[in-house]
Amino acid sequence: MPSGALLLQSIILGLLLGGLYALLAAGLTLYFGIMRVVMIAHSAFLILAAYLAWWTNDRLGIDPLLSMVVTVPLFFGAGVLLQRGLLSRLRPVTLTMMSVLITFAIALIIEGLLGYVFSGTQRRIQLGYGTESFNLFGARVAVVKLIAFALAAVSLAGLYVLMKRTQFGWALRATIQHPDAARLVGIDTERTAGFGFGLGLATAAVGGTALSLDTTIYPSLHWHWIGPLMAIIVVGGLGSVPGAAAAALVLGLAQSLLQIPMGATWAQTVFYVALFATLAVRPQGFFGGRLAQRF
């Protein structure tokens, strides 16, 4: 039986990790809600943002968090372009399958270009406060992990307010619920869908910056992220943001706790076990509503 401090440490780290998972899964859920698109390239954009943060720190010598000033609007624009230029031009009948392939192709292109420009070497940001940590009831919590979690939490809260309180949020939710009806009441669904995509990709920019603070990055890292993220959105029920957030926290916690007896590598399998178990027992996911049942 591991000691209480170790257990507490794992729980805190698991929750902090789960926050980051939740933010990224929220982006994936947005894409799926808007267009029934499974965005394989989401985690590739995540790594791209992490590389940009590393590059800002390495070359310009400024705090990696400041890179978000550029990357967030940039990724928003890229998301709008991606939706309007590529995804909305696919045939509606085969949209789901073909969009998977096209975003997969984008992921490959990003990975290849990252490898070409920055080489395959592993990179890590050296920060003045990178090694600092503080005690919380006997558990050591690194400051950077807390910053990453705070970023994720603030962005998620912002996303929530945007979705629930603003006119754009109403339009976006209407587009997700029933595009035809939304168009009837005068919502420009195509523009809204484009902006929704931009929003989803902006979460990858925030997540990538948060990730770069305390993780060693390399071009093919995105494959380690896409699996868990996909598992989270399926377990949470495709298209459900609260479901994805809950699944992210639970699975992040489970991963962190299982690391104690099983080690880091085998603990990752919890995502895939959860994925297969969900599909075998409850294919629509544990929190999904009526949307998920048909996909």
Binding site: V38, T96, W223, M230, A231, L238, Y272, L279, F295
Partner: peptide
Amino acid sequence: FAALRVRGASFVIVSIALVLILLL
């Protein structure tokens, strides 16, 4: 049995997950 109970999107997700878990 797990992968084909769901359509479209989830099937692709499962097929990718299969590769990643086997590699692991």
